[in-house]
Simulated scan of single mutants.
Amino acid sequence: MQTASTNICERMGRSQELSDSKRGTVIGCHLCNKSIHNISWLLNIPQSPVSGIITKWKQLGTTSTQPLSKRGERMLKRTVRRNHQLSVVSIAKDLQTSCGLQISTTTVHRELHGMGFHG
């Protein structure tokens, strides 16, 4: 039997990403001069994702999700702060194995220098 706290956690979790076909449908409705409110009502999607999809399509020309731009930098900082005595070569290998980033030792060195890590 589920408790009340379990039900709250399930309800408050993040929603799943919209499929490519649903995003395409949003853009199609937008091109047919439907309002954001109407698109939201027709597709049973909240208005804020509909607005975000349309905005992204206007700015980037695509509706696909983009990778995080600072992900590698954040992971590099976290790795260095955990163990500040690691060599640049071992940091580069660690990033390649843990998250699949293809990163050279020169790039790691340059980025660490730019973040204020010297030595």
Score class of each variant (00 low, 15 high):
69 S>L: 13
1 M>F: 05
59 Q>G: 07
113 H>C: 11
112 L>M: 06
45 I>F: 04
118 H>E: 10
15 S>W: 03
104 S>D: 00
102 Q>F: 10
64 S>V: 12
24 G>C: 05
50 V>N: 01
8 I>N: 06
92 A>S: 06
74 R>V: 07
96 Q>C: 08
62 T>H: 03
109 H>Q: 12
2 Q>W: 07
91 I>E: 04
47 Q>H: 10
20 D>E: 12
110 R>H: 03
102 Q>P: 06
48 S>D: 12
83 N>H: 10
91 I>H: 01
51 S>H: 11
91 I>T: 01
36 I>P: 05
28 G>C: 12
46 P>E: 01
61 G>W: 03
108 V>S: 04
81 R>Y: 13
100 G>I: 00
82 R>H: 10
119 G>W: 12
114 G>Y: 15
78 R>F: 09
3 T>K: 08
90 S>E: 08
110 R>C: 00
83 N>R: 08
64 S>A: 14
65 T>W: 09
98 S>F: 04
112 L>S: 00
42 L>H: 11
56 K>H: 06
60 L>V: 15
84 H>I: 13
42 L>E: 12
63 T>W: 01
92 A>D: 00
76 L>S: 01
104 S>W: 00
106 T>H: 08
93 K>F: 02
24 G>A: 05
75 M>D: 11
68 L>N: 09
118 H>G: 06
37 H>N: 13
113 H>G: 14
9 C>R: 15
16 Q>N: 14
69 S>P: 09
118 H>I: 10
30 H>W: 14
3 T>C: 11
76 L>C: 01
23 R>M: 09
105 T>H: 14
50 V>A: 02
109 H>N: 08
106 T>R: 06
62 T>Q: 09
74 R>M: 08
15 S>V: 13
8 I>A: 03
1 M>K: 07
7 N>P: 05
68 L>T: 02
55 T>L: 15
31 L>Y: 06
104 S>Q: 06
3 T>G: 12
86 L>A: 04
112 L>F: 04
111 E>Q: 14
73 E>D: 11
6 T>I: 10
98 S>C: 04
9 C>I: 14
103 I>Q: 02
111 E>Y: 05
78 R>K: 14
37 H>Q: 14
106 T>Y: 10
75 M>W: 07
91 I>R: 02
90 S>G: 00
55 T>C: 12
86 L>T: 03
25 T>M: 15
